[in-house]
Amino acid sequence: MAGKWLDVALTQLGNSYHSSSAFVAFVMNTSKIGTNNKNSLWSPTLIDLVHEVHDLKKIETARPGDLLFWGKPDHPYSVGIYVGGKHFISVTEKDAMVKVQILNDNWYPEFVGSVF
């Protein structure tokens, strides 16, 4: 199931977004993936994205297609889409471009949001 929105995310490589949450909302809405709340559209606001996922869990249980969040559930500051193998797709802090990135100890997500 993750394949569809991962494919959409990959088509955005090199594009610019004003925030990581705007990128994730675009991918989810383009893929027509429903949210956990009554509104069927994903919000480009980070705190709303946390509330729109179906389940929050620890990073060790991440599966491809899950949303990776940096920060605390009540105060996230970045989000990306987990690809697998310690890779994720997100907007870089440096140049606001969508890139495949590698998880590392210097910048590791705090929690995961399951989409299904």
Rank of each mutant, 00 (worst) to 15 (best):
L6E: 01
S114V: 11
K58N: 15
K32N: 15
H75E: 11
Y108L: 13
K38W: 12
N37K: 13
D55V: 11
K32H: 14
R63L: 14
Q12C: 11
G80F: 01
F111I: 07
S20A: 14
S16V: 12
M97I: 12
F88Y: 14
A2V: 05
I59D: 00
G84E: 03
F69P: 06
K94T: 15
H51M: 10
G34V: 10
E52P: 02
K38L: 14
V91H: 07
A2D: 10
T11R: 05
I102Q: 15
L46E: 08
M1V: 09
S31A: 15
W107I: 11
L46D: 05
D66C: 04
K99V: 11
I81P: 00
L41C: 08
E93H: 10
K4Q: 10
L49G: 04
E93R: 14
L46G: 12
L49A: 03
D55N: 13
I47W: 02
S114K: 13
S78N: 14
L68T: 05
K57T: 15
L103G: 01
K58P: 06
L13N: 03
H87S: 09
T61K: 12
T92S: 14
T35F: 03
N106H: 15
A25D: 02
F69L: 04
S78L: 07
W42P: 03
V91A: 06
K38M: 12
H75A: 15
A2I: 01
G3N: 11
L103N: 07
L56M: 05
S16E: 11
V115H: 02
W42M: 05
E52M: 10
Y108W: 08
L68A: 10
H54G: 12
K4N: 13
E52A: 07
